[in-house]
């Protein structure tokens, strides 16, 4: 009797947040799904544009291309930072971690603003180069794909460093010296022993980064200058400027389905709760 009562209370604990989430979160998401098949006319007309519209093809290609490029760059730089952190003496490691955390927590808008200040045509980099007489006309560093990639890589690096570093800390530090003792060169010991052992960290960080990069909005909107448009910004433009809820909601659903499909594929060989830090 008493146990039943307790169990009931704990079920209520679960059901309250579930009810709130359903009413205020899943219902709104369902509305987006519903709109995508009912506006402007019922049916899958909006989804046909995925096949027929060149504009949408270009947006999707741009999004995927930027996603792949930024993920790859962030992984390489992030791996190098994590590796250096692993080998650094404790004092220096704290400083490195400090820099990574500072940039991890810094507002996305502050960073976008900073990159604009640096890279725009009358920005600090171009002004300096012109005053030095190295160039006559400003270099196109921002309001294009280059600017978007720079801003996004900057955003993503900490997200690469932290899980990769956590994974590296779990690798037995005697293995590389053992390989060296058995005659492997430094490079071979790294390439054949350390790198394969750190692969799980790289893969789960890479997937997280790629999924994450597909939905970027603020950074591409600030640094792409309306010329390099990724899917999230395109959705916003469809709705805020063109008032085209049909296409906008269809693309939002497509983005969501893409993200969920990637996660489902990933869950076959990585523990999702680990990827999302639930176990840290």
């Amino acid at each position: 009797m008493e146990r039943d009562h307790a169990t009931r209370t704990y079920w209520i604990f679960i059901l309250i947040p579930l009810a709130v989430l359903t009413a205020f979160y899943f219902y709104p998401l369902a509305k987006v799904l519903w709109l995508s098949v009912t506006v402007p006319t019922p049916g899958f007309g909006n989804y046909e544009k995925l096949l027929s519209s060149t504009a949408i093809h270009n947006i999707m290609l741009t999004t995927l291309r930027i996603g792949v490029i930024t993920t790859a760059l962030s992984l390489v730089i992030g791996y190098a930072i994590a590796y250096a952190m692993l080998q650094a003496p404790p004092e220096r490691r704290v400083w490195m971690l400090f820099i990574v955390l500072l940039s991890f927590w810094l507002s996305v808008l502050v960073r976008g603003f900073a990159w604009l200040t640096l890279l725009q045509s009358r920005g600090l980099v171009n002004t300096a180069l012109m005053e030095m007489g190295l160039i006559d006309t400003p270099l196109p560093l921002v309001r294009n794909e280059l600017g978007v990639v720079i801003g996004m890589v900057h955003y993503l690096i900490p997200y690469a460093v932290l899980p990769i570093f956590a994974n590296m800390q779990g690798i037995d530090s005697r293995l590389v010296p053992a390989a060296r003792g058995l005659g492997a060169s430094r490079f071979t010991a790294f390439w054949r022993v350390f790198l394969p052992l750190s692969m799980p960290g790289i893969i789960s960080a890479g997937i997280l980064l790629f999924i994450f990069s597909l939905g970027f909005y603020i950074t591409p909107a600030l640094l792409g200058g309306g010329k390099t448009v990724m899917i999230a910004e395109y959705v916003a433009v469809q709705i805020m400027e063109a008032l085209n809820w049909g296409t906008g909601s269809m693309l939002a659903v497509t983005l969501l389905v893409g993200v969920i499909a990637l996660l489902a594929a990933v869950s076959r060989f990585a523990n999702l709760r680990e990827v999302f830090g639930a176990k840290s």
């Binding site: 205020f24 979160y25 219902y27 709104p28 998401l29 369902a30 509305k31 987006v32 709109l35 597909l214 939905g215 909005y217 999230a232 959705v235 916003a236 709705i239 906008g248 909601s249 939002a252 659903v253 983005l255 969501l256 993200v259």
Partner: peptide, 12 residues
């Protein structure tokens, strides 16, 4: 992704 639930919140 934020943009997806942003649309949903707006509609609801």
């Amino acid at each position: 992704p934020s943009i997806v639930h942003a649309l949903g919140f707006y509609q609801a």
